[in-house]
């Protein structure tokens, strides 16, 4: 038996999987291997709207598509901002783009940080390395409506001082009286006067009311594992912890199977999950 033809969607091969074209408006070097791209639609005035925590599938000509979280301000509809670490063929090609270079973008996809839902609570943002990129849109939103929230704390851990993303904004945020910012590095250089140690040690020092806290966490899985333990031991309720997960991804729309994480697909059920949703999976290795 055939299935009924769907009139609203003409049966073009892969129509939903072809990217829209974007142009690089500017590219800024963040660290020795990470770049922030400001890209704008080639054939439209505005980008599709996105929510903090969502990602795009970004295509580098001839190299392939990769899932990259959006690191810009969700209130700005003129551009997508992506902070990319050059680790493979596609990301290296993207980081090598020049002003006015062309790239493909599909998205945005996935779930988002519970920014609206956190109104009235303290918010603890914990980032490891490039994990700060998908959290920055949440910080923009939190700070744009600062009065809706209790304390806001940003805890950021990186390998070395040279790996710190968005240093200008971090300095600016640290200068604000209504935001607590702590940065720690694994290995200090001679000019580093700040903290040394893993990001979990910052959780003990930060000021927040655990019973009324929403934590947003993104970083390597092992970092999130220990961050979770630390947050729970400080008394943050399990359903107040949100984690952004990462798996291999080819399509972004639940068709390729790659991003399965337990019973979920990270591309559509994640990447941002309440911990309680993935508790059993999170505890298992090689899932």
């Amino acid at each position: 038996m055939a299935i009924a033809a769907e009139k609203s969607q003409p049966p073009l091969h892969g129509e939903s999987l072809a990217p829209a074209l974007y142009r690089v408006h500017s590219i800024r070097r963040e660290t020795h291997d990470s770049f922030t791209l400001d890209v704008r639609p080639q054939n439209a005035l505005n980008t599709p709207a996105f929510a903090p925590g969502q990602f795009n599938m970004v295509y580098a000509y001839g190299c392939g598509e990769v899932p990259i979280s959006i690191s810009g301000d969700p209130a700005d509809h003129r551009r997508f901002v992506h902070t990319i670490r050059a680790v493979g063929a596609a990301t290296t090609a993207l980081c090598g783009l020049k002003k006015n270079g062309t790239l493909g973008v599909r998205g945005p996809f996935g779930s988002h940080w519970p920014v609206d839902e956190s109104a009235g609570s303290d918010v603890v943002v914990v980032a490891g390395g490039i994990g700060l990129a998908p959290l920055r849109p949440a910080l923009y939103r939190l700070l744009a409506e600062r009065q809706r929230y209790g304390r806001i704390v940003l805890l950021y851990g990186v390998r070395t001082p040279g790996d710190i993303l968005f240093p200008r904004e971090l300095k600016q945020w640290r200068a604000q009286f209504d935001l607590e910012v702590h940065v720690t590095v694994d290995r200090a250089t001679s000019d580093w006067q700040g903290r040394v140690g893993v990001v979990t040690t910052l959780i003990r020092k930060a000021t927040f009311d655990p019973n009324n806290t929403v934590a947003m966490v993104c970083g390597p899985e092992v970092m999130m594992r220990f961050t979770l333990l630390e947050l729970l031991s400080r008394g943050v309720p399990a359903d107040g912890v949100f984690l952004s997960m990462e798996r291999n991804m080819k399509c972004g729309v639940g068709l390729c199977g790659h991003c399965q994480y337990g019973p979920t697909f990270i591309c559509k059920d994640g990447p941002v999950y309440p911990y309680t949703r993935i508790a059993s999976t999170f505890a298992t290795r090689e899932i």
Partner: peptide
């Protein structure tokens, strides 16, 4: 799912 596979659909509709 959240998105339909258009290549699959175009074949399936005619099967």
């Amino acid at each position: 799912g959240v998105a339909a596979d258009s290549a699959y659909r175009s074949r399936r509709e005619k099967t």
